[in-house]
């Protein structure tokens, strides 16, 4: 049987890939995908802790987090469409009216 450490390490690596993606990518949709990657990495941690302790609380939180990620995707994609209608681009380096 694979020990819990491997699952946690995989989850931490995926989370870090997500953070790096958010920080270096320029396309709003790719950034959003990286955020989803972070959330799903956390879900992996929660499920593995839950099976480790034999307690379902963690899996319940995963259900809520999946539902919330779906709601967030709805709102987020709508906002990205609104940005595209205004700028004809979703490149975040061109979205710079507001600063300081």
């Amino acid at each position: 049987m694979i020990s819990i450490d491997w699952y946690l390490a995989l989850s931490a690596i995926l989370f870090c890939i997500g953070i790096v993606g958010v920080l270096i990518r320029k396309n709003a949709i790719v950034i959003f995908m990286c955020v989803e990657l972070m959330l799903n990495a956390v879900n992996l941690s929660l499920v593995s802790f839950s099976s480790h302790y034999g307690n379902v609380d963690g899996q319940i939180l995963v259900f809520f987090s999946l539902a919330i990620a779906a709601a967030e995707a709805v709102v987020g994609l709508a906002i990205i469409i609104a940005i595209f209608r205004n700028n004809f681009s979703v490149d975040i380096t061109q979205i710079n009216l507001l600063r300081w």
């Binding site: 989370f15 997500g18 953070i19 958010v22 709003a28 950034i31 959003f32 955020v35 972070m38 959330l39 956390v42 919330i68 967030e72 709102v75 987020g76 906002i79 990205i80 609104a82 940005i83 975040i92 979205i95 009216l97 507001l98």
Partner: peptide, 15 residues
Amino acid sequence: EAALKYFLLGAFSTG
């Protein structure tokens, strides 16, 4: 633009 910034940073912090 305000909505996009709020959304991306808010979702990032949620992670």
